[in-house]
Design a protein around this nucleic acid. Structure first.
Length: 465
RNA sequence: CGGAGUGUGGCUCAGCCUGGUAGAGCACCUCGUUCGGGACGAGGGGGUCGCAGGUUCAAAUCCUGCCACUCCGACCA
C-alpha cells in the first residue's frame, strides 16, 4: 500500500486533460462549514482539499493531495540530501514488539489497540521506534555500518481525546519519522545536527521561517531535543524568541552534511539566542534580551527532533561491535515532521480573507487560467494556447474552463490560492493582452500571452531551490 | 476524561417551547436574459427530520436509551 505518490508532472500529455476544471474534481464550498474554527481548517474544507470522514480523520481530495505530495517531496529531498535513507514500515504493528521496550503498557489510551482473527494483539502505530530498532538489530552488527539514518513517511494514528483544527490536530496524520543509529554520543550528535540543518532547509523551502526551540523530551524520552516552530499570526501557541532569528541565514543547498564541524557551527548559531515556547518561557531571561529584541509571536510546531541515546537499543538489544571489539548498544535519535499538519500550518501562515496564498513550492498548481468568456471566439483559443505552452514549460496549470461568470472564477482562484492567475478576457485580448495577477500580493499586470508564459515559467520553478 | 451543545435535502439554517403529515437561502437540472469581482427571471428535481423504543387518534416536535459530531477545559506532532 503506497500512500504517498510522487507529484504528477503535467508535462506528461496524458495528464493534461485532468487539469481542465471541467474534468477535474474540485468540490468548492461557498459557505463556511460551521465546525471549522481556524483559518486553515475552514479554507481546506472550502477549497475542496479535505473531507472529514470521522472525528480527526480526513480524506485528502485531489487538490489537498497535490499539496501534500509537494510537501512530502521537499521533505524527501532534504532528508535524502542530509544522508537519510527512505524505507517504508507498516501502519500495523504487533503488541509483542512494544512489550519489549515496555511502552505497550506505558503508552496509554492514545494507542489504538485491537486483535486480529487469531486473537493476537495488534496496534495501529503511533510511532516507530520499536520497529525500526527491530529492523536495525536484525541486520547491523558492526560499527562499520554506522552511521545510519532510516526514515519513512507513513500514516500514524494517535487516539487523541479531542481532535480539532482539521488536519492540524487529527487522530490520523501523515508523519515523516527518521531514526538515527550511531556508535557513540559524538556520532549521535552529528546525526542530530544533520536533521537539525535539514529541517531548517525543509521549512525554508516551503516559504516558512522556522525557529528551533528547546523542548521537553516528552513520552519518547531523551535529553537533547528541539521543536521547530514556524511563525504564523494565527498559530496555536505563544512563543518567545530573539528577533535576530528572523535575519539568520538558512543553510544553502551546498551545505556539507558530512562536515561535522561545519554543521555544529550552524547548529550553535541557531541555538545561540533565546527561543522558547510558552511552557519553557522564562520572562526574566526574555526581558534581558535588550530593547526591541524580544519577539513575542504566535507559532505552530511543525517538527520535533530528539536524541534519546540507548533508551530502545538497550532493552531491545540493538548491539554493535566497536573498533575495539567490545559490544555496545547504539545511540539513537528520532526526528519527526508532520506533512499533513504542515499543509495546514502553511495555510495559517499564508492566507487572507479571500482564501489561501500558496507559496510557489507547495502550490497545488503553479498557475490558473481564467477564461472570462467561455465559448468566446477569441478567448477560447487564447486560453488553449496558454494552457499548452505553460504545460509544455513544466508549469502545473489548471484551466478554469467552466461556464461561470468572471466574478465566480476570480473568487475560486483566490480561494484555492494558485500563485499566478492569468485573466483572459475579450477586453484585454482586443489589445493582444492578458492580465497576470500574483495571488501573493494582488499585483496585476497586462502583458502579451507570450510574456505571460515566460514570466510564469520563470517564476514558478522554485521547487528545486 | 470532566463540562456544554448539536444532529431537519449536498451546504448554512428555520420549524420543536405551545404535537396535526416539512420550509428558506445557497448548490443542482431546464429555458431565457446576462457576462472583468461569487447575476436575474421562470420552471423543476431532491429530505422515512441521526437510530431504536415509548406516549398519543396523530411525533421533526413530548419521554427513555443508544450512536455520531462540535465547542470549552486537562493532554499532544
Amino acid at each position: 500500500m503506497r500512500l504517498v505518490w510522487p507529484p504528477v508532472s503535467t508535462a506528461d500529455p496524458a495528464q493534461r486533460i485532468f487539469m481542465r476544471l471541467s474534468r477535474y474534481f474540485l468540490p468548492i464550498l461557498r459557505e463556511i462549514p460551521k465546525e471549522a474554527e481556524i483559518a486553515s481548517h475552514r479554507l481546506m474544507l472550502r477549497a475542496g482539499m479535505i473531507r472529514q470522514e470521522a472525528a480527526g480523520i480526513y480524506a485528502f481530495l485531489p487538490l489537498g493531495l497535490r499539496v501534500l505530495d509537494k510537501v512530502c517531496r521537499i521533505v524527501r529531498e532534504e532528508q535524502n540530501r542530509s544522508g537519510a535513507i527512505e524505507l517504508l514500515m507498516p501502519t500495523i504493528q504487533s503488541a509483542e514488539l512494544w512489550r519489549e521496550s515496555g511502552r505497550y503498557e506505558a503508552y496509554g489510551k492514545e494507542m489504538l489497540r485491537f486483535k486480529d482473527r487469531h486473537e493476537r494483539e495488534m496496534l495501529y502505530g503511533p510511532t516507530n521506534e520499536e520497529m525500526i530498532t527491530e529492523i536495525f538489530r536484525s541486520y547491523v552488527r558492526s560499527y562499520k555500518d554506522l552511521p545510519l539514518n532510516l526514515y519513512h513517511i507513513q500514516w500514524k494514528f494517535r487516539d487523541e481525546v479531542r481532535p480539532r483544527f482539521g488536519v492540524m490536530r487529527g487522530r490520523e496524520f501523515l508523519m515523516k519519522d527518521a531514526y538515527s543509529f550511531d556508535l557513540d554520543f559524538e556520532g549521535a550528535k552529528h546525526s542530530y545536527n544533520r536533521m537539525f540543518v535539514a529541517y531548517l532547509r525543509t521549512f525554508a523551502r516551503m516559504g516558512l521561517r522556522s525557529i528551533p526551540m528547546v523542548a521537553e523530551s516528552g513520552p519518547i524520552g531523551g535529553n537533547l531535543s528541539h521543536e521547530f516552530i514556524i511563525l504564523a499570526d494565527t498559530g496555536e501557541s505563544e512563543v518567545f524568541c530573539h528577533g535576530d532569528y528572523l535575519t539568520f541565514e538558512v543553510p544553502g543547498p551546498d551545505v556539507d552534511f558530512d562536515n561535522a564541524k561545519a554543521l555544529q557551527a550552524i547548529v550553535d548559531k541557531w541555538t545561540s539566542l533565546y527561543a522558547a515556547t510558552s511552557e519553557k518561557h522564562d520572562p526574566s531571561l526574555f526581558a534581558k534580551l535588550g530593547p526591541g529584541k524580544g519577539l513575542s509571536a504566535r507559532g505552530i510546531e511543525v517538527g520535533h527532533i530528539f536524541y534519546f541515546g540507548t533508551k530502545y537499543s538497550e532493552p531491545m538489544k540493538a548491539i554493535v561491535t566497536g573498533p575495539d571489539g567490545t559490544d555496545r548498544p547504539v545511540h539513537s535519535g528520532s526526528y519527526g515532521i508532520g506533512p499533513s499538519r504542515l499543509v495546514a500550518a502553511i495555510i495559517e501562515a499564508f492566507h487572507d480573507d479571500a482564501g489561501i496564498k500558496w507559496p510557489q513550492s507547495v502550490a497545488p498548481f503553479g498557475a490558473i487560467i481564467l477564461n472570462l468568456k467561455q465559448g468566446g471566439a477569441d478567448t477560447d483559443p487564447a486560453c488553449e494556447r496558454l494552457y499548452a505552452e505553460l504545460t509544455a514549460k513544466g508549469v502545473d496549470t489548471l484551466y478554469h474552463d467552466l461556464e461561470e461568470r468572471p466574478g465566480s472564477k476570480f473568487a475560486t482562484a483566490d480561494l484555492i490560492g494558485i500563485p499566478w492567475q492569468i485573466l483572459v478576457g475579450p477586453r484585454g485580448l482586443a489589445e493582444g493582452k492578458v492580465e497576470v495577477k500574483r495571488r501573493a500580493d494582488g499585483t496585476r499586470e497586462l502583458m502579451s500571452p507570450a510574456d505571460a508564459v515566460t514570466r510564469i515559467s520563470q517564476g514558478s520553478n522554485l521547487l528545486y531551490a
